[in-house]
Amino acid sequence: MTLLSVEGLTVELPGSARPVLDAVDLSVAAGEVVGLVGESGSGKSVTARSALGLLPAKARVTGRVLVEGKDLVGADAAHLREVRTGVASMVFQDPRAGINPVRRIGDFLTEPLRLTKGWSKRQAEARALELLAAVGLPDPPRHLRQYPHQLSGGMLQRVMIAGALAGEPRLLLCDEPTTALDVSTQAEILALLGGLQRERGLGLLLITHDIELAAASCDRVYVMYAGRIVEEASAGELFGSPRHPYTRGLLGSTPPLTGPLERLRPVPGAPMSLAESAPGCAFAARCDFAEPGRCDQSPPRLLPVPGAADRSAACVRVAELPPVVATEVRS
């Protein structure tokens, strides 16, 4: 069952040269881990937030954001509340920014339950203990009484995940959930998210700048650039044979940990800011394969890649590009 279906979502902000999101199509099914990869300004966070109906206040929005079949664009407050408290929830990058530092962990977890579900204090606390145990924290009764500063970043991110699970959501949106954490903690948090996702059959959307993290932990990956989806593929295919020049560029920019060490082939220039726009492909200015007259005319649409099932790329030259020399698959 499709939990989240974003259809042709376009978000324009006054004063910016290009749309923040430009005809984004994306779906997440129950039991599926989907990656959304992009650099700063690609619109990946805006896309994720749209699934909670959280769009910038002054934005002009067209398209649809269907959560369990119901459109959130222009939805009334009651419907949004229903989605946010029961269907979908979000885990953010910096756990310290998402929690009131002067209130106890217990308050953070029980308050929403008491307010939205009208539970008694005891009921809510019992549930909070369950949640803290579910996210693998060692001593739930003690954590309930602790303040955020008494926990490490990794533990606090577990608390945030517990909070996100409180409403028994079916869709979990994780916006760079490990970027603010240490590398070794990153593995723990992803193990936790993976375990919860399988146990509960959640649909999980993982937003990250790290293409290797997405490839290693997702079933399917979308790559975003300048507000558009430029490529969609299964994680294995994306990593083994990227088709869009931008995806190739990202992989060519990532230094390998094993195998031969060649000089990196960085993408020239910088990601397109909101103050810039291009009539054609937004990546053309940085693309090795860009062809005047073809790539700078109109934005390329995300189309199935010829000869490759279940893959799409937004590049007019995708069929003509030389194949990528297979990068050595690491153990």
């Binding site: 590398v183 070794s184 290797e212 290693a216 690491r330 153990s331």
Partner: peptide, 9 residues
């Protein structure tokens, strides 16, 4: 801890 294909967190 560095993600890679076949990674097992």
């Amino acid at each position: 801890s560095v993600p890679h294909p076949g990674w097992d967190p």
